[in-house]
Every structure is written in structure tokens, then in C-alpha cells.
């Protein structure tokens, strides 16, 4: 479903991704872990063509992104949903308009149909009744959940989650984890989730990949990750300050 080959990207004269290979099968959720600033968000931005690779290719739905014209790229993107790290809610619109924007701009659904879908998605993320409020009036965690509702509003086949549980209290975080698992099981959503939260990673991931120094240094199941002998991987999942990586 998603295939990334030899992805290289430099930003500001600095190599951020240096030959990343990743595959995500249909219906699978891949969790990407890695330290702050290692390029996880940059990796996600390549999957939908928001950034162009310096070298390498990205293929989704069997189509290589750099060979698509804009119209076809938009067609593919409409089948995808993205939860941005900062939410990226449109602050000139209400929460409900945010969630419904993709539907009202890209489909012929009537206002009431859209309102029903929006209300349903907001309920899924525990924000029922928040629709008429402005994003700037919400707390950070609520904004993240509203953004999640927007990401799944168009019944996407691929969803990219950039740190879905950061900034949420443990109980809400668990609720979001459940929701992600439910989406995978019921709607057969293919997903890439980026996170630092190991608890969430173990819970939602079918597979876990670790990004370090621009490369994927580990790619395997949750059990394989737990038993990995790689000192970097071990230090990361345990969260130790001693080991091959400097804590600061």
C-alpha cells in the first residue's frame, strides 16, 4: 500500500533522511519511533508529497508520487487522512467546519449529511457538541482530538498520525489508542503512526520501525522490538539515560 525506497532528504544543508526504506501492507499499522528531530515528521510529509525527496521514491496505492500530476495527486490524497503534529486546524473556521471541509469541498454531499458525519466523528474522539466552537478556544488536547476527527472525516484508506497521543492525559490517550485500533480493525485502515509514547506504540502497532540518524535501524514486530539486541533500540524503549545515545 505504501512503499518508500531509498528516501534521501536534506533540509537547511543538513541530511535529515539518508536512505529510508519502508513498506506498509494494506490494513497494517506501522509505528515509527525515533528521537526528537530525527525526521519522523519529515518522513510523513514525504508520504503524501508535501515534501519532494532529493532522491528515492514514494509509492502509494501502487502509484509513484513523483510521476503524478497535481490532479491525480489530489485524487490520491483525498483517500488519505493526516493528523498533523500541531493539529493544523484552520483557525478561521469552527471545529465543525474544519472537520467537514474536505467533504464540503470535494464531495457533493448535502449540508445535513455533512453535519451528521461531522457530529459522528466528533463523538468518536470524545468531542460531541464542540462543533460550533473556534479551534483557538480549545485546549491543546482537544485540538489534537479535533484534528484527529478531521483526519478520519472522509473515511480514508490511509491515515498518517503524527504523535496522536502527545499532550493528552493518560486516559484520553488510551481512548485515542483504542480508536486507532478500532479504525484498523473495523475499517481496515492502513496507517503510519509516529510517536515517542512506547505504551501507545506497543498498543497500536502491528509493526514498529525505528528511525535513527536518517536511517531505519530497526523494523519488526512488537516482540522482536522488545527482544532486539541493538543497544540503541534498547536504550530508546527503556528510556535510559545511559547507553550509546546522549540524553541531551
Amino acid at each position: 500500500m505504501i512503499a518508500i525506497r531509498g528516501l534521501v532528504k536534506s533540509l537547511d544543508h543538513r541530511v535529515v533522511l539518508n536512505g529510508v526504506d519502508l513498506d506498509v501492507a494494506k490494513g497494517e499499522t506501522l509505528v515509527v519511533i525515533g528521537r526528537s528531530c530525527c525526521g519522523k515528521s519529515v518522513l510523513l510529509k514525504h508520504v503524501l508529497g508535501l515534501m519532494k525527496p532529493d532522491a528515492g521514491t514514494v509509492t502509494i496505492f501502487g502509484k509513484q508520487l513523483d510521476q503524478l500530476d497535481r490532479a491525480h495527486l489530489y485524487e490520491l490524497r483525498m483517500r488519505c487522512g493526516v493528523l498533523f503534529q500541531g493539529g493544523a486546524l484552520f483557525d478561521s473556521l469552527t471545529v465543525a467546519e474544519n472537520v467537514g471541509l474536505g467533504l464540503s469541498e470535494n464531495t457533493t454531499k448535502s449540508k445535513s449529511e455533512i453535519a451528521d458525519i461531522v457530529a459522528e466523528r466528533l463523538e468518536w474522539v470524545g468531542l460531541a457538541g464542540i462543533g460550533p466552537r473556534a479551534p483557538s478556544d480549545l485546549s491543546g488536547g482537544m485540538r489534537k482530538r479535533a484534528a484527529l476527527a478531521r483526519a478520519i472525516a472522509m473515511d480514508p484508506e490511509i491515515v498518517l498520525y503524527d504523535e496522536p497521543t502527545t499532550g493528552l492525559d493518560p486516559i484520553t490517550a488510551e481512548g485515542i489508542n483504542d480508536l486507532i485500533v478500532r479504525l484498523r480493525e473495523r475499517l481496515k485502515v492502513t496507517a503510519i503512526a509516529v510517536t515517542h509514547d512506547m505504551n501507545s506504540a506497543f498498543k497500536i502497532g502491528d509493526r514498529i520501525a525505528m528511525l535513527h540518524a536518517g536511517k531505519i535501524i530497526f523494523d519488526g514486530s512488537v516482540d522482536q522490538l522488545r527482544n532486539s539486541a541493538d543497544p540503541i533500540v534498547q536504550q530508546f524503549i527503556v528510556g535510559a539515560t545511559t547507553g550509546p545515545l546522549e540524553p541531551l
Binding site: 508535501l50 490524497r77 493544523a88 486546524l89
Partner: peptide, 12 residues
């Protein structure tokens, strides 16, 4: 704040 990126990925 990535809102323009968000528009792009929503196919707008």
C-alpha cells in the same frame, strides 16, 4: 502552523 499543508492533504 501547517494549515496550508493540511489543505493540500485534504485535496483542497
Amino acid at each position: 502552523t501547517e494549515q496550508i499543508d493540511a489543505l493540500e492533504v485534504m485535496g483542497v
